[in-house]
Design a binder for these strands. Structure first.
Lengths: 199, 199
DNA sequence: TTTAATTGACCGGCTGGCCGGTCAACCGAA
DNA sequence: TTCGGTTGACCGGCCAGCCGGTCAATTAAA
Protein backbone atom coordinates (compact mmCIF):
# COMPACT_ATOMS: atom_id res chain seq x y z
CA UNK A 1 0.00 0.00 0.00
CA UNK A 2 1.17 3.48 -0.82
CA UNK A 3 0.94 6.51 1.35
CA UNK A 4 -1.88 6.35 3.80
CA UNK A 5 -3.59 9.68 4.13
CA UNK A 6 -6.47 10.42 6.39
CA UNK A 7 -8.84 11.21 3.53
CA UNK A 8 -11.76 11.88 5.79
CA UNK A 9 -9.79 14.32 7.86
CA UNK A 10 -8.47 16.24 4.88
CA UNK A 11 -11.91 16.35 3.38
CA UNK A 12 -13.17 17.96 6.56
CA UNK A 13 -10.31 20.44 6.50
CA UNK A 14 -11.22 21.48 2.99
CA UNK A 15 -14.84 21.87 4.04
CA UNK A 16 -13.83 24.05 6.99
CA UNK A 17 -11.73 26.17 4.67
CA UNK A 18 -14.57 26.48 2.18
CA UNK A 19 -16.82 27.43 5.08
CA UNK A 20 -14.52 30.26 6.08
CA UNK A 21 -13.95 31.57 2.58
CA UNK A 22 -17.53 31.25 1.35
CA UNK A 23 -18.82 32.91 4.51
CA UNK A 24 -16.42 35.80 4.11
CA UNK A 25 -16.72 36.48 0.39
CA UNK A 26 -19.82 34.65 -0.77
CA UNK A 27 -19.89 31.56 -2.93
CA UNK A 28 -19.70 33.24 -6.30
CA UNK A 29 -16.93 35.66 -5.39
CA UNK A 30 -14.80 32.96 -3.81
CA UNK A 31 -12.10 31.35 -5.90
CA UNK A 32 -11.08 27.73 -5.57
CA UNK A 33 -7.56 29.09 -5.21
CA UNK A 34 -8.61 30.96 -2.07
CA UNK A 35 -10.18 27.89 -0.55
CA UNK A 36 -6.97 26.00 -1.27
CA UNK A 37 -4.82 28.67 0.35
CA UNK A 38 -7.10 28.74 3.39
CA UNK A 39 -6.80 24.96 3.65
CA UNK A 40 -3.04 25.16 3.17
CA UNK A 41 -3.03 22.92 0.11
CA UNK A 42 -2.80 23.22 -3.67
CA UNK A 43 -5.79 24.05 -5.79
CA UNK A 44 -5.59 20.78 -7.68
CA UNK A 45 -5.92 18.80 -4.48
CA UNK A 46 -9.43 20.09 -3.88
CA UNK A 47 -10.43 18.31 -7.06
CA UNK A 48 -9.16 15.04 -5.60
CA UNK A 49 -11.86 15.38 -2.98
CA UNK A 50 -14.67 17.23 -4.72
CA UNK A 51 -15.86 17.13 -8.28
CA UNK A 52 -16.54 20.80 -8.79
CA UNK A 53 -17.08 24.07 -7.01
CA UNK A 54 -20.81 23.50 -6.97
CA UNK A 55 -20.42 20.02 -5.56
CA UNK A 56 -18.17 21.48 -2.87
CA UNK A 57 -21.03 23.76 -1.85
CA UNK A 58 -23.42 20.82 -1.73
CA UNK A 59 -21.05 18.83 0.45
CA UNK A 60 -20.47 21.84 2.65
CA UNK A 61 -24.20 22.25 3.06
CA UNK A 62 -24.59 18.62 4.14
CA UNK A 63 -21.68 19.08 6.52
CA UNK A 64 -23.23 22.18 8.09
CA UNK A 65 -26.61 20.54 8.52
CA UNK A 66 -24.99 17.59 10.25
CA UNK A 67 -23.00 19.89 12.54
CA UNK A 68 -26.07 21.87 13.42
CA UNK A 69 -28.09 18.74 14.13
CA UNK A 70 -25.33 17.54 16.41
CA UNK A 71 -25.30 20.89 18.16
CA UNK A 72 -29.02 20.75 18.86
CA UNK A 73 -28.83 17.14 20.05
CA UNK A 74 -26.15 18.15 22.49
CA UNK A 75 -27.97 21.23 23.75
CA UNK A 76 -31.23 19.37 24.21
CA UNK A 77 -29.76 16.18 25.60
CA UNK A 78 -31.55 14.95 28.67
CA UNK A 79 -34.40 17.45 28.55
CA UNK A 80 -37.70 15.61 28.76
CA UNK A 81 -40.53 18.02 29.45
CA UNK A 82 -42.04 19.42 26.23
CA UNK A 83 -42.11 23.07 27.33
CA UNK A 84 -38.48 22.81 28.36
CA UNK A 85 -37.58 21.23 25.05
CA UNK A 86 -39.22 24.06 23.13
CA UNK A 87 -37.54 26.63 25.34
CA UNK A 88 -34.22 24.87 24.98
CA UNK A 89 -34.62 24.68 21.24
CA UNK A 90 -35.31 28.39 20.94
CA UNK A 91 -32.41 29.27 23.20
CA UNK A 92 -30.09 26.96 21.29
CA UNK A 93 -31.27 28.34 17.97
CA UNK A 94 -30.67 31.98 18.86
CA UNK A 95 -27.38 31.09 20.53
CA UNK A 96 -26.32 29.34 17.35
CA UNK A 97 -26.50 32.61 15.44
CA UNK A 98 -23.52 33.87 17.39
CA UNK A 99 -21.75 30.57 17.70
CA UNK A 100 -22.10 29.50 14.09
CA UNK A 101 -22.40 32.86 12.39
CA UNK A 102 -20.48 31.86 9.24
CA UNK A 103 -22.96 29.05 8.67
CA UNK A 104 -25.78 31.47 8.19
CA UNK A 105 -23.95 33.48 5.58
CA UNK A 106 -23.36 30.30 3.63
CA UNK A 107 -27.00 29.35 4.10
CA UNK A 108 -27.94 32.56 2.30
CA UNK A 109 -25.87 31.42 -0.66
CA UNK A 110 -27.46 28.00 -0.53
CA UNK A 111 -30.94 29.51 -0.47
CA UNK A 112 -30.15 31.70 -3.41
CA UNK A 113 -28.55 28.81 -5.26
CA UNK A 114 -31.18 26.19 -4.49
CA UNK A 115 -34.04 28.41 -5.55
CA UNK A 116 -32.97 28.21 -9.19
CA UNK A 117 -31.96 24.57 -9.13
CA UNK A 118 -34.12 21.75 -10.39
CA UNK A 119 -36.70 20.53 -7.94
CA UNK A 120 -34.73 17.32 -7.44
CA UNK A 121 -31.28 18.89 -7.24
CA UNK A 122 -29.30 17.68 -4.27
CA UNK A 123 -29.07 21.13 -2.72
CA UNK A 124 -32.79 21.61 -2.84
CA UNK A 125 -33.54 18.17 -1.50
CA UNK A 126 -31.07 18.64 1.34
CA UNK A 127 -32.84 21.85 2.22
CA UNK A 128 -36.29 20.32 2.09
CA UNK A 129 -35.31 17.22 4.01
CA UNK A 130 -33.64 19.20 6.75
CA UNK A 131 -36.68 21.42 7.03
CA UNK A 132 -39.12 18.53 7.06
CA UNK A 133 -37.14 16.66 9.65
CA UNK A 134 -36.97 19.70 11.93
CA UNK A 135 -40.69 20.16 11.56
CA UNK A 136 -41.34 16.51 12.33
CA UNK A 137 -39.24 16.71 15.46
CA UNK A 138 -41.07 19.81 16.62
CA UNK A 139 -44.47 18.27 15.87
CA UNK A 140 -43.61 15.33 18.08
CA UNK A 141 -42.65 17.63 20.92
CA UNK A 142 -45.80 19.70 20.55
CA UNK A 143 -47.96 16.60 20.43
CA UNK A 144 -46.23 15.22 23.49
CA UNK A 145 -46.88 18.53 25.18
CA UNK A 146 -50.54 18.37 24.30
CA UNK A 147 -50.80 14.77 25.49
CA UNK A 148 -49.05 15.71 28.72
CA UNK A 149 -51.43 18.60 29.33
CA UNK A 150 -48.76 21.28 28.94
CA UNK A 151 -50.08 22.71 25.67
CA UNK A 152 -53.27 23.22 23.80
CA UNK A 153 -52.89 23.11 20.06
CA UNK A 154 -55.25 22.12 17.28
CA UNK A 155 -52.66 22.05 14.51
CA UNK A 156 -49.25 20.96 15.79
CA UNK A 157 -47.78 21.05 12.29
CA UNK A 158 -48.76 24.66 11.74
CA UNK A 159 -47.44 25.55 15.17
CA UNK A 160 -44.17 23.84 14.34
CA UNK A 161 -43.92 25.68 11.06
CA UNK A 162 -44.58 28.94 12.81
CA UNK A 163 -41.87 28.29 15.37
CA UNK A 164 -39.29 27.31 12.78
CA UNK A 165 -40.16 30.29 10.60
CA UNK A 166 -39.59 32.65 13.53
CA UNK A 167 -36.17 31.21 14.12
CA UNK A 168 -35.11 31.40 10.47
CA UNK A 169 -36.51 34.89 10.07
CA UNK A 170 -34.69 36.08 13.17
CA UNK A 171 -31.46 34.54 11.87
CA UNK A 172 -31.81 36.61 8.73
CA UNK A 173 -32.55 39.84 10.57
CA UNK A 174 -29.81 39.29 13.06
CA UNK A 175 -27.28 38.68 10.31
CA UNK A 176 -27.87 42.08 8.75
CA UNK A 177 -28.33 44.19 11.80
CA UNK A 178 -26.62 42.61 14.75
CA UNK A 179 -26.33 45.93 16.52
CA UNK A 180 -30.09 46.39 16.61
CA UNK A 181 -30.51 43.06 18.28
CA UNK A 182 -30.18 41.80 21.80
CA UNK A 183 -30.21 38.06 21.36
CA UNK A 184 -30.82 37.28 25.03
CA UNK A 185 -33.72 39.69 25.26
CA UNK A 186 -35.07 38.29 22.02
CA UNK A 187 -34.77 34.72 23.24
CA UNK A 188 -36.81 35.53 26.27
CA UNK A 189 -39.47 37.41 24.33
CA UNK A 190 -39.68 34.74 21.66
CA UNK A 191 -40.02 31.97 24.21
CA UNK A 192 -42.78 33.85 25.96
CA UNK A 193 -44.61 34.48 22.70
CA UNK A 194 -44.33 30.88 21.56
CA UNK A 195 -45.44 29.54 24.93
CA UNK A 196 -48.42 31.83 24.89
CA UNK A 197 -49.39 30.71 21.42
CA UNK A 198 -49.37 27.15 22.75
CA UNK A 199 -51.05 27.97 26.02
CA UNK B 1 -37.43 69.79 -29.75
CA UNK B 2 -35.29 66.68 -29.46
CA UNK B 3 -36.84 63.30 -29.05
CA UNK B 4 -38.43 63.04 -25.70
CA UNK B 5 -37.96 59.56 -24.43
CA UNK B 6 -39.74 58.51 -21.35
CA UNK B 7 -36.57 57.76 -19.41
CA UNK B 8 -38.46 56.84 -16.32
CA UNK B 9 -40.63 54.39 -18.17
CA UNK B 10 -37.73 52.66 -19.91
CA UNK B 11 -35.87 52.49 -16.67
CA UNK B 12 -38.82 50.69 -15.14
CA UNK B 13 -38.99 48.33 -18.10
CA UNK B 14 -35.37 47.39 -17.64
CA UNK B 15 -35.99 46.84 -13.95
CA UNK B 16 -38.95 44.58 -14.71
CA UNK B 17 -36.81 42.63 -17.15
CA UNK B 18 -34.01 42.33 -14.61
CA UNK B 19 -36.59 41.17 -12.10
CA UNK B 20 -37.73 38.38 -14.38
CA UNK B 21 -34.28 37.24 -15.38
CA UNK B 22 -32.66 37.49 -11.95
CA UNK B 23 -35.60 35.65 -10.38
CA UNK B 24 -35.38 32.85 -12.90
CA UNK B 25 -31.64 32.30 -13.03
CA UNK B 26 -30.19 34.06 -10.05
CA UNK B 27 -28.15 37.24 -10.09
CA UNK B 28 -24.75 35.71 -10.74
CA UNK B 29 -25.90 33.36 -13.47
CA UNK B 30 -27.83 36.06 -15.28
CA UNK B 31 -26.10 37.85 -18.13
CA UNK B 32 -26.65 41.49 -18.95
CA UNK B 33 -27.36 40.28 -22.49
CA UNK B 34 -30.31 38.25 -21.18
CA UNK B 35 -31.74 41.20 -19.33
CA UNK B 36 -31.46 43.24 -22.52
CA UNK B 37 -33.22 40.59 -24.59
CA UNK B 38 -35.96 40.29 -21.99
CA UNK B 39 -36.40 44.06 -22.10
CA UNK B 40 -36.35 44.04 -25.90
CA UNK B 41 -33.38 46.41 -26.15
CA UNK B 42 -29.65 46.27 -26.80
CA UNK B 43 -27.19 45.48 -24.05
CA UNK B 44 -25.48 48.83 -24.35
CA UNK B 45 -28.69 50.65 -23.58
CA UNK B 46 -28.82 49.19 -20.11
CA UNK B 47 -25.60 51.06 -19.37
CA UNK B 48 -27.31 54.31 -20.29
CA UNK B 49 -29.63 53.75 -17.37
CA UNK B 50 -27.49 51.84 -14.87
CA UNK B 51 -23.81 52.04 -14.09
CA UNK B 52 -23.11 48.36 -13.65
CA UNK B 53 -24.68 45.01 -13.04
CA UNK B 54 -24.30 45.45 -9.31
CA UNK B 55 -25.88 48.87 -9.39
CA UNK B 56 -28.75 47.37 -11.39
CA UNK B 57 -29.34 44.95 -8.54
CA UNK B 58 -29.29 47.80 -6.03
CA UNK B 59 -31.81 49.78 -8.06
CA UNK B 60 -33.96 46.71 -8.51
CA UNK B 61 -33.91 46.17 -4.79
CA UNK B 62 -35.07 49.71 -4.15
CA UNK B 63 -37.73 49.29 -6.80
CA UNK B 64 -39.02 46.09 -5.20
CA UNK B 65 -39.10 47.59 -1.75
CA UNK B 66 -41.12 50.52 -3.05
CA UNK B 67 -43.54 48.22 -4.87
CA UNK B 68 -44.00 46.11 -1.79
CA UNK B 69 -44.57 49.13 0.37
CA UNK B 70 -47.18 50.37 -2.06
CA UNK B 71 -48.79 46.96 -2.05
CA UNK B 72 -49.09 46.97 1.73
CA UNK B 73 -50.41 50.51 1.80
CA UNK B 74 -53.11 49.52 -0.64
CA UNK B 75 -54.07 46.36 1.19
CA UNK B 76 -54.21 48.09 4.56
CA UNK B 77 -55.83 51.28 3.34
CA UNK B 78 -58.72 52.35 5.50
CA UNK B 79 -58.22 49.77 8.23
CA UNK B 80 -58.10 51.49 11.58
CA UNK B 81 -58.42 48.99 14.38
CA UNK B 82 -55.00 47.68 15.46
CA UNK B 83 -55.98 43.97 15.56
CA UNK B 84 -57.40 44.29 12.07
CA UNK B 85 -54.28 46.01 10.86
CA UNK B 86 -52.11 43.22 12.20
CA UNK B 87 -54.40 40.61 10.68
CA UNK B 88 -54.47 42.47 7.40
CA UNK B 89 -50.72 42.79 7.40
CA UNK B 90 -50.22 39.07 7.93
CA UNK B 91 -52.75 38.19 5.27
CA UNK B 92 -51.20 40.64 2.82
CA UNK B 93 -47.73 39.34 3.59
CA UNK B 94 -48.55 35.70 2.97
CA UNK B 95 -50.62 36.61 -0.09
CA UNK B 96 -47.64 38.53 -1.43
CA UNK B 97 -45.61 35.32 -1.57
CA UNK B 98 -47.82 34.07 -4.35
CA UNK B 99 -48.44 37.42 -5.96
CA UNK B 100 -44.85 38.60 -5.95
CA UNK B 101 -43.02 35.31 -5.96
CA UNK B 102 -40.15 36.47 -8.18
CA UNK B 103 -39.39 39.22 -5.67
CA UNK B 104 -38.51 36.72 -3.03
CA UNK B 105 -36.05 34.88 -5.20
CA UNK B 106 -34.30 38.14 -5.86
CA UNK B 107 -34.37 38.95 -2.17
CA UNK B 108 -32.38 35.79 -1.56
CA UNK B 109 -29.72 37.10 -3.89
CA UNK B 110 -29.78 40.44 -2.18
CA UNK B 111 -29.40 38.84 1.23
CA UNK B 112 -26.50 36.76 0.03
CA UNK B 113 -24.94 39.79 -1.64
CA UNK B 114 -25.49 42.27 1.15
CA UNK B 115 -24.05 39.98 3.78
CA UNK B 116 -20.57 40.35 2.35
CA UNK B 117 -20.84 44.02 1.50
CA UNK B 118 -19.43 46.81 3.60
CA UNK B 119 -21.60 47.88 6.48
CA UNK B 120 -22.44 51.12 4.69
CA UNK B 121 -22.98 49.66 1.22
CA UNK B 122 -26.18 50.83 -0.37
CA UNK B 123 -27.67 47.34 -0.57
CA UNK B 124 -27.09 46.74 3.09
CA UNK B 125 -28.45 50.12 4.11
CA UNK B 126 -31.55 49.62 1.95
CA UNK B 127 -32.11 46.31 3.68
CA UNK B 128 -31.63 47.74 7.13
CA UNK B 129 -33.76 50.80 6.51
CA UNK B 130 -36.61 48.77 5.06
CA UNK B 131 -36.47 46.48 8.02
CA UNK B 132 -36.31 49.26 10.56
CA UNK B 133 -39.16 51.11 8.95
CA UNK B 134 -41.36 48.01 8.91
CA UNK B 135 -40.55 47.45 12.54
CA UNK B 136 -41.34 51.04 13.40
CA UNK B 137 -44.69 50.80 11.65
CA UNK B 138 -45.55 47.62 13.49
CA UNK B 139 -44.48 49.07 16.80
CA UNK B 140 -46.87 51.98 16.32
CA UNK B 141 -49.72 49.61 15.60
CA UNK B 142 -48.94 47.44 18.60
CA UNK B 143 -48.68 50.50 20.84
CA UNK B 144 -51.95 51.82 19.51
CA UNK B 145 -53.45 48.42 20.22
CA UNK B 146 -52.17 48.51 23.75
CA UNK B 147 -53.46 52.05 24.26
CA UNK B 148 -56.82 51.04 22.85
CA UNK B 149 -57.07 48.07 25.18
CA UNK B 150 -56.89 45.50 22.38
CA UNK B 151 -53.47 44.15 23.29
CA UNK B 152 -51.23 43.63 26.22
CA UNK B 153 -47.57 43.83 25.48
CA UNK B 154 -44.58 44.87 27.55
CA UNK B 155 -42.12 45.12 24.69
CA UNK B 156 -43.79 46.26 21.48
CA UNK B 157 -40.49 46.32 19.63
CA UNK B 158 -39.70 42.71 20.41
CA UNK B 159 -43.23 41.74 19.44
CA UNK B 160 -42.84 43.57 16.17
CA UNK B 161 -39.53 41.84 15.48
CA UNK B 162 -41.10 38.52 16.23
CA UNK B 163 -43.98 39.14 13.82
CA UNK B 164 -41.70 40.30 11.02
CA UNK B 165 -39.36 37.37 11.54
CA UNK B 166 -42.26 34.94 11.22
CA UNK B 167 -43.27 36.46 7.93
CA UNK B 168 -39.75 36.42 6.49
CA UNK B 169 -39.09 32.91 7.70
CA UNK B 170 -42.33 31.67 6.19
CA UNK B 171 -41.44 33.34 2.90
CA UNK B 172 -38.22 31.38 2.83
CA UNK B 173 -39.86 28.07 3.67
CA UNK B 174 -42.66 28.61 1.22
CA UNK B 175 -40.22 29.40 -1.57
CA UNK B 176 -38.49 26.05 -1.26
CA UNK B 177 -41.41 23.79 -0.57
CA UNK B 178 -44.60 25.32 -1.86
CA UNK B 179 -46.29 21.94 -2.07
CA UNK B 180 -45.92 21.36 1.66
CA UNK B 181 -47.65 24.63 2.38
CA UNK B 182 -51.22 25.79 2.46
CA UNK B 183 -50.91 29.56 2.58
CA UNK B 184 -54.50 30.18 3.63
CA UNK B 185 -54.32 27.69 6.43
CA UNK B 186 -51.01 29.15 7.47
CA UNK B 187 -52.37 32.69 7.42
CA UNK B 188 -55.12 31.72 9.76
CA UNK B 189 -52.86 29.82 12.11
CA UNK B 190 -50.26 32.58 12.12
CA UNK B 191 -52.84 35.25 12.83
CA UNK B 192 -54.22 33.24 15.70
CA UNK B 193 -50.76 32.65 17.13
CA UNK B 194 -49.77 36.31 16.86
CA UNK B 195 -53.02 37.50 18.37
CA UNK B 196 -52.62 35.13 21.25
CA UNK B 197 -49.09 36.32 21.89
CA UNK B 198 -50.44 39.89 22.13
CA UNK B 199 -53.48 39.21 24.25
C1' DT C 1 20.03 -2.27 6.30
C1' DT C 2 20.19 -0.38 1.90
C1' DT C 3 18.26 1.00 -2.26
C1' DA C 4 15.53 0.47 -6.43
C1' DA C 5 10.88 0.35 -7.76
C1' DT C 6 6.26 1.65 -7.22
C1' DT C 7 2.42 4.18 -5.95
C1' DG C 8 -0.82 7.92 -5.77
C1' DA C 9 -1.45 12.21 -3.27
C1' DC C 10 -0.38 16.66 -4.36
C1' DC C 11 0.58 20.62 -7.04
C1' DG C 12 0.09 24.79 -9.89
C1' DG C 13 0.72 26.57 -14.68
C1' DC C 14 -2.17 26.69 -18.43
C1' DT C 15 -6.26 27.30 -21.37
C1' DG C 16 -10.72 27.90 -23.20
C1' DG C 17 -14.78 29.94 -22.59
C1' DC C 18 -17.43 33.29 -20.50
C1' DC C 19 -19.29 37.76 -19.69
C1' DG C 20 -19.16 42.69 -17.87
C1' DG C 21 -18.41 46.75 -19.81
C1' DT C 22 -16.98 49.90 -23.91
C1' DC C 23 -17.43 52.59 -27.98
C1' DA C 24 -17.60 53.59 -32.89
C1' DA C 25 -21.19 53.22 -35.91
C1' DC C 26 -25.84 53.73 -36.75
C1' DC C 27 -30.73 55.47 -36.77
C1' DG C 28 -34.37 58.59 -37.19
C1' DA C 29 -36.79 62.65 -35.68
C1' DA C 30 -36.49 67.56 -36.07
C1' DT D 1 -27.54 68.04 -41.11
C1' DT D 2 -27.62 67.51 -36.32
C1' DC D 3 -27.76 65.04 -32.26
C1' DG D 4 -29.88 62.33 -28.61
C1' DG D 5 -30.60 57.75 -28.28
C1' DT D 6 -29.48 53.08 -29.39
C1' DT D 7 -26.86 49.14 -30.67
C1' DG D 8 -24.08 44.85 -30.68
C1' DA D 9 -19.45 43.50 -32.08
C1' DC D 10 -15.58 43.49 -29.63
C1' DC D 11 -12.14 43.45 -25.89
C1' DG D 12 -9.78 41.84 -22.03
C1' DG D 13 -9.72 40.15 -17.42
C1' DC D 14 -10.97 36.31 -14.91
C1' DC D 15 -11.25 31.68 -13.15
C1' DA D 16 -12.96 26.64 -13.08
C1' DG D 17 -11.20 22.72 -14.15
C1' DC D 18 -7.44 20.00 -16.34
C1' DC D 19 -3.32 17.43 -16.60
C1' DG D 20 1.48 16.25 -16.77
C1' DG D 21 4.99 16.27 -13.51
C1' DT D 22 6.85 15.72 -8.80
C1' DC D 23 8.16 13.43 -4.71
C1' DA D 24 7.26 11.48 -0.05
C1' DA D 25 5.96 7.28 1.67
C1' DT D 26 6.10 2.53 1.29
C1' DT D 27 7.50 -1.93 -0.15
C1' DA D 28 10.48 -5.64 -1.09
C1' DA D 29 14.47 -7.45 -3.21
C1' DA D 30 19.25 -7.78 -2.26
Amino acid sequence: MPIVVDKERKRAEILEAAMTVFARKGFHRSKMEEVAVEAGIGKGTIYEYFESKHQLLQSLHGYMLAKLKEYYAEKLHGIEEPPRIIGGFLAAALASFREWEPFFYVFCDVWAEAGRAEQQSLLRMQLRDAYKSSIDDLVLVVEAGVAGGFFHCDHPRLAAEHILACVDGLALHWLYDQEAFDLDEMTEALTRAVMRSLE
